[in-house]
Amino acid sequence: MDTKDALLIIPAYNESKAIGKIIIEIKNQLPGLDILVVDDGSSDETKKYAQQAGAMVVSLPINLGYGAALQTGYKYAQVKKYDYLLQMDADGQHEPKYLKDLLEAIKTKKADIIIGSRFLSKVKYHPSLIRRLGMIFFAKLTTSIIKQKITDPTSGFQAMNRRILNFFTDDFYPSDYPDADVIIYLHRAGFRIKEMPVVMYPASNKKSIHSGFKPLYYIFKMFLSILMIFLRKRPYKKGE
């Protein structure tokens, strides 16, 4: 498969232990794929190990948060005019085997964004009870709002095309954790969203980019974001 027109973005914060291994694994599976690690102000050797493994690295001078790190990657891809974009986490949660499927799907299926869903996969994923409840709740909420079945709005394992890229480099994109709100926003802007099964593992590194946030604050913020989507003017259609 042609991978020249695609970029894989991996936001990483203090992932020096995991990052090299992941990149080498990806390089084995998709040798021609450009990989950009966005080092989100890490205090360890994330940048060094990522470069040694053969990835390009953009280093942020301060820790901006998962969403802002991703967005830095989107901005890079926009400037470098990549047609397709893949993204995955650096903590070993996402199984690199599925990158190929995601890329193929975004190129062939009629969708602007493909979200890798851990809940569509046969391999079961077991998060903590509170996380599981939150995930189910927001999946149901998203499904009922956009009237399309979404099983895993939290997933950061995604593929998208250039049109979404233009949309995601905009100011609305959250600095912390893009989630159900972004999916609803995409739907409102007229983008086509699809899900496909992927395998995810529980984070190997406890201090991963996804953990540590306070669930109550998170739920409250997500409600507020979703409410605001409907109070604001409808965004432009399809990234034009």
Binding site: V38, V58, P61, L64, K75, Y76, S175
Partner: peptide, 17 residues
């Protein structure tokens, strides 16, 4: 300011590369 700091940091990161 948060927004401005974010944009500046992203720009610095991209320019450094």
């Amino acid at each position: 300011f948060t927004d401005q700091v974010k944009k500046i940091s992203q720009k610095i990161g991209l320019l450094t590369k």
